Each structure stands twice: as structure tokens, then as C-alpha cells.
Amino acid sequence: GWGRPDQVWLTGRVLERLAPAGARSADRWWRNVRATLQRVASREVAGVELQLTIGGCTARAVSDNDGYYAARVDRLTLAAGWHSTQVEPVAPPAHATGRRWSSDVLVVPGDAPLGVVSDLDDTVLHSGVTNLLVAARTVLLDNAATRVPWPGVGALYRGLAEGAQGRSPAGTGAVPVFYLSTSPWNLYDLLTEFLDRHRLPRGPMFLMDWGLSHTGLLRGHDHGHKRERLETLFATYPRMRLVLVGDSGQRDAEIYRDAARAHPGRVAAVVVRDVTTPDSARARAVHAALGELGRLGVAAITCADTSDAAAFLTGLGLCHPSTVEKVRAARDDDRRHPH
């Protein structure tokens, strides 16, 4: 969940069972395939009425046909930082194994001046989403311990979260990081475990529901999802300027350009990880989008190396100068030990 001191949004999913946690780099390929299939073939529980409690206030929600639930809680007086929400079925299903669970909620002040929004696939970690066979192999055969990060990305994002003063936000949400991706919610546990393993800042995650739509077509990779979530963040935090981070493989550059065009002065910087072939049509499209960002007054860069991103962001006063050396050291370590 996420929100402001006076209002939070709580989301979750009711499943019959969870995929196994605690991935290891030594896990055999067949174990990873089995875990992936368990995630994809999740058994959702519909029609469960839930009571959600946070900050002494409660709300009710009912899981839909895909097991998802969502609720908004108003009239709160929460401090900035992470909070715990208690979730309890009003009438637990007969086969339920637990009567109560908790989820974390990040509360960010409504007047927070700066935030970070980052894509995940091929930005934070290698996924190969532009190549169907590579992406399928990665999802099936890898786990949170074997997925490969953008070398140095953990140090880069910690530098962004600590801000220009180089001090840890200590969970206050002073420089919050939101993760925005078209990955399916079925991979939520794998992605959170990956972020923890590589010491990336905790943050709310906005993923997608993959499956058959009412038209019978497969849902997923809907770039409208990213645009809608960005609009929600702009509206929720009206004084917040956003650092937007994505990759060149998808349409992140164009989405971020459109956001800057629609919200003048609200985009602090754009960083696009370069994962495309030079002089390709996709590379030219990214170059054009970044050129337009420059004409809109938004500093933007495309780069393959996190140290270049760190130098760029430090030059804009968004990271402490020590971030550059920290990112270089972390980058070299990740290259030596990618897992």
C-alpha cells in the first residue's frame, strides 16, 4: 500500500497458497520452473470479505474474480514512513490456512518535494522483454538469486533515496521510490526478493494483471498502465517532482516525454538505460523523445552504465557527490559477482 498521512490505498490478493520463497543461486533449473509454474497457475479466491485496519481506522473490501482487493482509507493522521496494515477475513473460507496477515504501507507527505519512479524489467534487472524467447527463458529458469541486476543499480537507487545530502531517509519516505512495471502480479514475491537481495530501496510496486481479458485476448504489456499510474502519483503528490527511470527497449522514453509535456515543471530528470542496438529504429525513437524532453526543459540521458547515470544525477544536485564512487565500486562488484 501507499499514500499520504491523511489517506492511503491498500491492495492485495487472496490466494489458496503462495509460491515457495528463499531462492538460492544453486537451485536446479527444474526447481525454478516448478516455482514459476506455481506462480503462473496461482489459485485465486474470489468473494472473500476482508477487514483492513491501519492507524486505528478500518475499511472493508471484497476479493474479485481474480482474487484482488483494493480499499481506500481516509481521515487518517499517520506519520511519514512505513506502517503495517492488518488484514483479516470477516468470514474466513473453510480451507483458509491463516485468519490474519499484515502488509506494509508507505506514507509520504503530501508536500514531499521529490520522488523516484522506476521501471523494473531491463531497467533494474535483466529480463529481455523485447525478445520473447529470452524473456520466457529468464522467467522460467531463473529465480530471485540468479536474475542479473543492472550493475551498480542498488547503489544508484540508494543514492537517489538518500538525496543530495547523502543521508539515509531512515524509512521516512523523504525521497520515496515507486516501482512501475508491466510485469504480472504473479511475480511480485520474486521481484521483492530480488530488490532485497540487491539492497534496493523499499517502495510501493505497481504491476499488472496478466490473463485473458473480456475479449478473450491476453492482457499484459499495456503501456497505458504506466501512464495511468504516473497520473495518479502526480495527482496524489501535487508538489512532488519526479525522477523517471526506464529503459530503451520499451516505450518508457515516450511515456516520460508525454508526462513532462502534460505536467510542466513536475519531471526533475529522466534516465533511460540503453539496451537497444545502435542506429536501430528503437534507438532513433528514444533519441527523438529525449531531444523533445530537452526542449521542454527536462534534463535527460540515455546510458548503459550506472556510473554515467550517477554522474548525471549528481550534476543535477539530486544525489550526493559520493554517490558516483559508490556506484562505480558497486558496478564493478556486480560485474564480478552478477548473482
Rank of each mutant, 00 (worst) to 15 (best):
P5L: 01
T11N: 07
L15T: 11
A21M: 10
D27M: 04
R31L: 12
N32S: 14
N32R: 15
N32E: 02
A35T: 13
A35V: 10
A35F: 00
T36D: 04
R39C: 09
V40L: 15
A41H: 11
S42E: 13
R43A: 06
G47I: 10
G47E: 10
V48C: 05
V48I: 08
T53Y: 01
G55W: 02
T58A: 14
V62C: 10
D64S: 07
Y69N: 07
A71F: 06
R72K: 14
T77L: 08
T77H: 13
T77S: 15
T77I: 01
G81M: 11
G81P: 08
W82I: 05
P89S: 06
P92D: 03
A96N: 05
T97G: 15
T97L: 14
R100P: 00
W101K: 00
G110Q: 14
D111W: 12
D111R: 09
V116E: 00
S118D: 02
L120K: 01
G128E: 03
G128M: 05
G128T: 07
V129F: 15
L133A: 15
V134N: 08
A135P: 00
A135L: 11
R137I: 06
T146S: 14
R147A: 12
V148Q: 12
W150A: 06
G154R: 04
G154V: 03
A155H: 03
L160V: 06
L160M: 12
S168Y: 02
A170M: 12
G171I: 09
V177A: 09
L187I: 02
L190W: 03
L190A: 14
T192I: 07
R199S: 14
R199I: 04
L200S: 02
R202S: 11
G203C: 01
F206Q: 10
L207P: 00
L207G: 03
G211V: 06
G211A: 04
L212W: 11
S213C: 04
L217Y: 10
H221W: 13
H221A: 12
D222N: 13
H223F: 09
E228M: 11
R229T: 10
R229P: 00
L230C: 09
E231F: 00
T232Q: 15
F234W: 11
A235M: 06
P238Y: 08
P238L: 05
R239P: 00
R241S: 10
L242E: 03
G249H: 09
G249Q: 08
I255R: 01
A262Y: 01
H263R: 14
A269W: 03
V270I: 05
V275F: 08
L290R: 04
E292T: 07
R295V: 02
R295M: 09
A299H: 11
T302P: 00
C303H: 14
D305P: 01
T306M: 04
D308V: 10
F312I: 09
T314K: 01
G315Y: 06
L318V: 00
L318I: 02
C319F: 05
H320I: 04
T323F: 05
E325Y: 02
R328K: 12
D334E: 09
D334L: 11
H339R: 14
